[in-house]
Every structure is written in C-alpha cells, then in structure tokens.
Amino acid sequence: MKRQESTGKMLWKLFRATFLLSAFTFGGGFVIVSLMKKKFVEELQWLEEDEMLDITAIAQSSPGPIPVNASVILGYRMYGVVGSLVAVLGTILPPMIILSLISVFYAQFRSNRVIALALQVMRAGVAAVIFDVVINLARNVVSTRRKVYIILMAAAFVAKVFFGVDAMLLILFCLGVGLLDLALQAYHRRKAVAP
C-alpha cells in the first residue's frame, strides 16, 4: 500500500511539473525542453544530463510537438505507460485551456494593444531561452570530446544557417553518421577483444 501511495505521489508530482512547465512556457518546443532540463535534471534530479539530451534528440526527430514527444519519453522513463499518459496530460491541458479561452475572446484579444505589446515583449524572452538551449546543447556535444560529433554539429549549423538545408535532412544525416560511428566503435571493440 505504501508503494502505491509513493507512486501516486510521484505521478502527481510528474503531472504538476509538466502542467506548470506547459502553462508558463511560451515560444515552442525548444523553450520547454530547456525548462524540462532545469526541472527534471537539475532540480528534481530524476534524469541525468545525457538522458535529457537523448530525450531532446528523439523528441525533435519524431513527428508531433516537441513538448508532447518529450513528455511521452520522460513519463515512460519514470513510470511506464501510466507515466507517459500522466506527463502528456499535464503537457497538453494548459494549451488546450488557454487556447479555448482565447478563441472565445479572439476579437477582443486581436484588437487589444496591451496584449499585442505583451506578445512582442515575450518574443524577446523566447529568443533568449532558445539561445540558452543552443548554448547548452552545444556545450554538451563539446563535452563529449568526440571530434566527429563536434564537426558534425558545426557542419549542420553552417548547412542550416547559410545554405538553408532542411532540418529533417540534417537530422537524418546526423542519425546516419551516429549509427555508422556506433557500428565502427563496436567493430573496433570486437577486433580488440579477438585473439
């Protein structure tokens, strides 16, 4: 019985954390992923830094909204299918509630100068948070000290920014290089062990 209570409390904590993150995050998936890292890695210490980086990569390369994808993985990592459902519910409820209210008062919101100004100011904050995400992800890649990953990161950045290469192509290419690198590492380990 005590196990169920602690699981129930943890599921409530997971729901509350994802609900609050989703309710007070503006600017899309990259912003909420950064805040998820701060919440679940640094504050609650439910995940390691590498796990959050993996969750971010999978969430970005999977179809659908990044926050929902990240919540599915995070919830599953914590408490299986039930954890996924709880985390997704916590993530999707705030936007559904907020958008439902906005749709009712859409005409008033559209013509209100104060709301228009608030939205413009929030864009600056969103840009700062996205920049923070980029710096943190780049720092994590550099900390691996793997030349292949560092060169791949720089090449993907140049390809996207200067040549406008589609993000999905970059993700698939990086995935291919990562799988090839993994296969080469496995081959070298087997070769080193073989007599």
Rank of each mutant, 00 (worst) to 15 (best):
M1A: 13
R3D: 15
Q4F: 15
E5T: 10
T7K: 15
G8C: 07
K9V: 04
M10A: 14
L11S: 12
T18I: 09
T18R: 09
S22H: 10
A23L: 15
T25P: 00
G28T: 10
G28A: 11
G29Y: 04
F30L: 11
V33P: 00
S34N: 14
S34T: 14
L35V: 08
M36V: 06
K38N: 13
K39P: 03
F40D: 06
F40Y: 10
V41T: 03
E43Q: 14
Q45Y: 02
L47H: 07
L47A: 08
D50R: 14
D50N: 09
D50T: 10
E51T: 12
A57S: 13
I58C: 03
Q60D: 01
S61D: 02
P63A: 01
P65Q: 08
S71F: 06
V72L: 11
I73A: 05
I73Y: 14
Y76L: 05
R77K: 15
R77H: 13
Y79C: 04
V81W: 09
L85P: 00
L85A: 13
V86G: 06
A87G: 07
G90W: 09
G90N: 10
G90T: 07
L93W: 05
P94V: 05
P95K: 12
M96R: 04
I102V: 15
S103T: 06
V104N: 06
R110A: 14
N112D: 15
R113P: 08
A116W: 02
A116Q: 15
L117T: 15
A118W: 05
L119V: 11
Q120F: 05
V121N: 04
G125F: 12
A127I: 12
A127Q: 03
V129P: 01
I130Q: 01
D132N: 13
V133L: 14
V134L: 14
R139D: 07
R139I: 07
R146D: 09
V148W: 00
Y149K: 00
I150R: 01
I151A: 12
L152R: 06
A154E: 05
A155M: 11
F157H: 04
V158Q: 05
A159E: 04
F162G: 11
D166R: 10
A167W: 02
A167T: 14
M168T: 14
L169A: 09
V177H: 07
L179I: 13
Q185S: 08
R190F: 03
R190G: 15
A192C: 01
P195T: 03
